[in-house]
Design a protein around this nucleic acid. Structure first.
Lengths: 242, 242
DNA sequence: AGCCCGCCATGATCCAGGTCAAGGCTGGCG
DNA sequence: CGCCAGCCTTGACCTGGATCATGGCGGGCT
């Protein structure tokens, strides 16, 4: 950080100083005055895996930034069939602007830390800081691109291609600093086999079998069911099905 | 239209007066001055089914409003497998703000009429008229909701439920004035069997068989392969699978 | 007219992934 | 410690939808 930026940061609330939501997220659009106003209404939480954050068709009165961990967005049919329709990582903004109720469920997939704001404070910020609204707009478009990308995967790829595509996506999302052209990667799966199945529209047995196959073929190693080492990124890419 | 509105409309370009893009679309956010500026750069087209409007990964230098007809948004894997990831009806805005190139293909599914603008004109309008940008934001969120809704359908429903859900969606999209609680409906399918298959992640033979089944069960009638009459909306809803 | 081409329907067969079943591993808790 | 619950793996078998094949229908072109 340069001296110039240091001076500018003098008015920034302590809470926000090293916050992901400001560093790369929507709050980065706000000047110190706005941040002070918003920070007064903000509250931080840490929630355990499995905790429901927002219910489908539920009225929502707060929005949040994801500061760490992974949130899964799901939809469920009346007979229990479930589909994960999106994943959110830090510093994504969690919530549906311009609507009273959420069209989806949001649930912590891992330990998640959040910075929550009353809905009204966010609405005001969107009015007062056009660049803030614009960041939310941009995130919505990125999520739309991602949702459409996954429609192709869910609709048209084979089980083997789906699992490879998922691993590649996670490898690239978990640590965005990693060289995208790296030969290998290493990360903790944020989802159980069952969750991965709900994301890819498979059964957990099928996910398990495909992971076993990737392991047998020397593409990946798995420790403790969760920790994955990708030994051959190129091998993984070749299995994603164009 | 009241006298008051009549007076206000006096400065509106003739082209825009009865335009769907202004009536219910993004241009409704613009005042006469803005409309005049935008209309100077606008051009209207009519294109035949099958005409490619935007290519995947192609640089785009114009945006459009859909004034009539249906546009399909597709993604294709390198080996030709295709998925329709969205449909656009009047008065949807066609184009990806904040990006040089489109992440998807857009193709006319029916005869489509468009009102196109140079990209720069739209970018300027987003700066000058915050309410215009907000409308585009809202449309993006509606498209995101729709994409997620279809992820559930594509991923978790059976072939029979998929086709029923598709017919219901079309019945409700084609004529938005129709009573959503109506007992029956009547419309032209904007897509071929093959297109419907690409939308639902099925094969066209499967779509054909499911339509035959709905016909045999007295839920729908089909004339000329395209014109559908839904005799039992409730029967169709019951087959959508929650 | 006669031909071709795109679209659709339907039957026969196949197979990827779903379903059912059995067992292992790990961590929390009485 | 022993028990239980959640998660994972693997095997055996089944089935919904894909694939392959055949033919009909309608509209445009020569």
């Amino acid at each position: 950080m340069t001296a110039q930026q240091d001076i500018h940061s003098s008015g920034i609330p302590v809470l926000c100083l090293s916050c992901e939501g400001r560093h790369r997220g929507p709050c980065g659009a706000l000047d110190p005055d706005h941040l002070v106003g918003l920070a007064k209404t903000a509250s931080r939480h840490k929630v355990e895996p499995g905790v429901k954050l927002v219910g489908e068709a539920e009225t929502v009165d707060s929005y949040s930034n994801v500061l760490s961990g992974v949130v899964k967005l799901t939809k469920t049919l009346s007979d229990g069939r479930q589909q994960i329709v999106g994943l959110q990582f830090a510093p994504d903004f969690l919530g549906r602007p311009f609507k009273m109720d959420s069209p989806i469920n949001a649930e912590a997939a891992t330990v998640v830390s959040l910075c929550s704001f009353p809905k009204a404070a966010v609405v005001r910020m969107m009015k007062d800081a056009p660049e803030f609204e614009r960041r939310l707009f941009k995130q919505a478009l990125v999520e739309l691109d991602a949702a459409r990308e996954w429609m192709v995967t869910v609709g048209r790829k084979t089980a083997s291609e789906k699992v490879a595509s998922f691993l590649l996506m996670i490898a690239r999302s978990i640590d965005r600093t990693v060289d995208p052209a790296a030969k290998s990667a290493c990360f903790d799966l944020p989802l159980t086999r069952g969750d991965i199945a709900d994301f890819l529209a498979l059964r957990f047995e099928t996910v398990s079998r495909q992971l076993t196959r990737l392991r047998a073929d020397g593409i990946i190693r798995i420790e403790n069911n969760r920790h994955v080492t990708v030994d051959s990124m190129s091998g993984l890419e070749r299995r994603c099905g164009g």
